[in-house]
Amino acid sequence: MTSIIRFQNVTKRFGALTVLDDFNFDVRPGEKVTLIGPSGSGKSTVLRILMTLEPFQEGHLELAGISYHEPNGRGAFKASEKHLHKIRCNVGMVFQSFNLFPHMTVLRNIVEAPVAVLKMKRAEVESRAIDLLRMVGLLDKKDHYPSQLSGGQQQRVAIARALAMRPRVLLFDEPTSALDPQLVGEVLGVIRALASEHDLTMLLVTHEMRFAREVSDRVCFFDKGRIVEQGDPDRFFGNPEQPRTREFLSSILND
């Protein structure tokens, strides 16, 4: 089966610092993959590169059959805005700090992009947005502004906003790290519901180990810009092979 995401020998540097080092990574369509590891290990960078928020310097990357290198583009690592637009049609992202637009209502936050970018009919998008809001349990908040919502509610809106663009791949960048502990559950609940959707490919960066074990098909442990160990969650958490993995897991589980 062909991969929906394929990193081939990708190297990403910030100045002298190498964040991804000759990195290889494949994801099947519909697969739910959790990326874990210490901060600065490169796991968030993988998501940010996929979302075209960061460029990379070497290697090859493909998402849904579209290369991040523009054919006949301006140099290998400088795609045009038009080409990046094409890549982004297949991928959405949920951010650690929600990043809702403060000057728009909840409904408008969700409707804006499908109408402006996908040129869909507003009425059609609104009815879908209402379905999404019902799914995340926030239909009664549709006319509120983000500043009137709790962090957990804002993150659920952000998930609905990303889904409204009908991405094939959805990226979650530490979606619960900025939340108060008592609000984490409601967001994980929404992500758990999404994980049962067969077609949606999900990449999740998180520190919620129990949740990762529960929802993912595969867990990847990152260290120093490489995947040190990966596998089926039960095997991974039950019997980690690498000493570095064991060390990390015991440090995080003893918190």
Binding site: L53, R88, M93, A113, A116, M165
Partner: peptide
């Protein structure tokens, strides 16, 4: 910057 990143993730054009 987070607002620009969110806009990018939703595929808005620069002008928009």
């Amino acid at each position: 910057l987070a607002q620009h990143e969110a806009a990018r993730a939703l595929n808005f054009s620069r002008t928009y």
